[in-house]
């Protein structure tokens, strides 16, 4: 397998703020790589560095075998980039927007290509609708259609499903999975854990550096988190007490359950032994990806 993305030591500052701080990343061909991290952790900036929209202060590497600094024009031709903010012309129709993109990429047999992608994304019924009048989910579809219209080898998606409903998100991810099966490499940033779990590998960024990476299952396992859930009528009263308790990093009410997370099993068990209320029982439950990320966000804040 060859690397679709292979960059080392990328750095980018805006004024005094180091946004990307020595980031090295390798993504294999055909891989779906999930980019995670809090707001301002450098996800968007990294993606922009990869597609040549920003020039790194230092560092080097390749995207699809092209140098990210010297050959950004070649890279542009072969990647699809979907911006975080909807960036199509609201006063053009779906079809007109796609035609415009197809022309910029000089796609042969443009009409057929546009028609084909519209059918594939189920946009054909909305071909004549103004892009500005589409709902959130359909706007994302249009943006994805435009990003893959020229059959790129690498797809960079920056929070593609932010603000989109669950059904639309699932349909969107089905499309991405299909394209990955066809051999396209996908780098996608997201805040949704269900989406992160659909990636072959997740990369967690904090302060412009990669903190953790690997398949979601491994990331959860390697974090060695201890998670307990309590259920019963009295959990509401226990929340605040739980948050003060030693060894408990987070305590959250999720629906009918109180979920506490810690790292040291003995300490957590000792802590919950103190958290008693009538009708409340504790169960040992497996950690989830979001527990890991909240844990990572917490340690990030602790280390200035």
């Amino acid at each position: 397998m060859t690397a679709a993305i292979d960059v080392k030591g990328l750095r980018k500052s805006f004024g005094p703020r180091k946004v990307v701080d020595g980031l090295s990343l390798a993504v294999q061909e055909g891989e779906i790589c999930g980019f995670l991290g809090g707001n301002g952790s450098g996800k968007t900036t990294t993606i922009r560095l990869l597609c040549g929209l920003l020039t790194p202060d230092s560092g080097s590497g390749t995207c699809l075998g092209f140098d990210i600094i010297k050959q950004s024009e070649e890279i542009r031709l072969q990647i699809g980039y979907m911006t975080q903010r909807f960036s199509f012309y609201v006063d053009l129709t779906v079809e007109e927007n796609l035609n415009f993109v197809a022309q910029l990429y000089q796609i042969p047999d443009r009409e057929a290509a546009v028609k084909d992608i519209m059918v594939r994304m189920e946009l054909d019924n909305r071909a004549a609708q103004l892009a500005g009048e589409l709902s959130g989910g359909w706007k994302q579809r249009l943006a994805l259609a435009a990003a893959v219209l020229h059959k790129p080898k690498l797809l960079l998606l920056d929070e593609p499903t932010a603000g989109v409903d669950a059904r639309a998100r699932r349909a969107f991810w089905d499309l991405i999975s299909d394209m990955a099966l066809d051999g396209m490499t996908v780098l996608v940033s997201t805040h949704y854990m269900d989406e992160a779990e659909r990636c072959h590998r997740v990369v967690y960024l904090a302060g412009g550096k990669i903190v953790v990476q690997g398949p979601a299952v491994d990331v959860v396992e390697n974090a060695h988190l201890v998670v307990f859930e309590a259920s019963g009528a009295g959990i509401g009263k226990l929340v605040h007490q739980a948050r003060e308790a030693k060894g408990i990093e987070s305590a959250t009410v999720i629906g009918q359950a109180l979920r506490v997370v810690g790292t040291d099993r003995a300490v957590v068990e000792a802590a919950i032994a103190e958290l008693k209320a009538p009708g409340v029982t504790w169960h040992d439950v497996p950690a989830r990806l979001d527990d890991v990320f909240i844990h990572l966000l917490g340690t990030e804040e602790a280390t200035p």
Partner: peptide
């Protein structure tokens, strides 16, 4: 201001 610039820049023009 419309945000379309970023997309335009990412395309080969």
């Amino acid at each position: 201001e419309a945000g379309t610039m970023e997309n335009l820049l990412a395309m080969p023009i």
